[in-house]
Simulated assay, not measured.
Amino acid sequence: MSYMDNWHKSSYSGPGDGNECVEIATSTTHVAVRDSKAPARATLTFPPEAFGHFLEGVKSDAGR
């Protein structure tokens, strides 16, 4: 199974949020991110280590 068959929406996405958030799919070599409102559009793809750094940056910016 490729990551393209393995999309998961954030548990924070719910009816109150209009089900609009990012979706993530993983494989052994990549992590892919897409907009749940426009899944056919562009997808960001990261090697797993780079995705970890991306998340660290997002979390540190969230506190500002």
Rank of each mutant, 00 (worst) to 15 (best):
D35H: 04
S13D: 08
D17W: 10
M4Y: 02
A38G: 06
G16E: 15
F51R: 08
G18M: 15
N19W: 15
P39F: 03
A62K: 14
A50N: 11
G14F: 11
Y12A: 12
D61Y: 01
V58K: 05
T45M: 03
D61P: 00
R41D: 09
G14T: 12
A32T: 11
W7V: 03
I24V: 15
N19T: 08
N6T: 01
P15A: 15
R34W: 02
S10E: 06
T29P: 01
D61G: 01
A40E: 11
K9G: 06
K59P: 03
T43K: 13
K9A: 08
P15N: 15
N19K: 10
G57L: 10
A62T: 14
V22M: 14
V33D: 13
E20Y: 09
T26M: 14
S10H: 04
D17P: 00
E56S: 14
H8V: 11
A50K: 05
A38C: 08
P15V: 14
A42P: 08
L55Q: 10
T26V: 14
H30G: 03
G14Y: 13
S10M: 07
V31S: 01
K59W: 09
D61T: 12
N6I: 04
S2A: 08
D35W: 01
L44Q: 10
S27I: 01
S2V: 05
A40W: 04
R64H: 11
H8N: 12
G57N: 10
A62R: 15
H30T: 01
T45I: 15
R41Y: 04
A42I: 12
A50W: 08
M4C: 02
H8Q: 14
C21F: 07
F54G: 02
A32N: 13
G18N: 15
H53Y: 07
P47N: 09
N19Y: 15
R34C: 02
D5S: 00
C21W: 07
G16D: 15
G63M: 08
A32W: 12
T43L: 09
S60K: 06
F46H: 10
E56Q: 14
S27P: 11
S11I: 07
E56F: 09
E56V: 13
F51C: 10
P48M: 06
H53C: 05
E23H: 02
G52E: 05
G57R: 06
K59I: 05
K37F: 00
A62I: 12
P15F: 10
S10T: 10
T29R: 03
K9T: 07
V31I: 14
F51N: 04
T29I: 08
D17I: 09
Y3D: 10
T43S: 03
A42G: 13
E49A: 08
A62D: 14
E56W: 07
A42E: 14
H30Y: 06
F46G: 05
K9H: 07
C21N: 13
P48V: 07
P39A: 01
V58F: 03
T26H: 00
E23W: 01
R34H: 04
A38L: 11
Y3F: 12
V33F: 11
G16M: 11
A50D: 13
P48K: 02
T29W: 04
N6C: 00
Y12I: 01
V22N: 00
G52T: 13
P39I: 02
C21D: 08
G52P: 08
H53V: 12
E20D: 10
V58H: 06
R64W: 07
R41I: 00
V31D: 01
G57V: 10
A25H: 00
D35Q: 00
E23S: 00
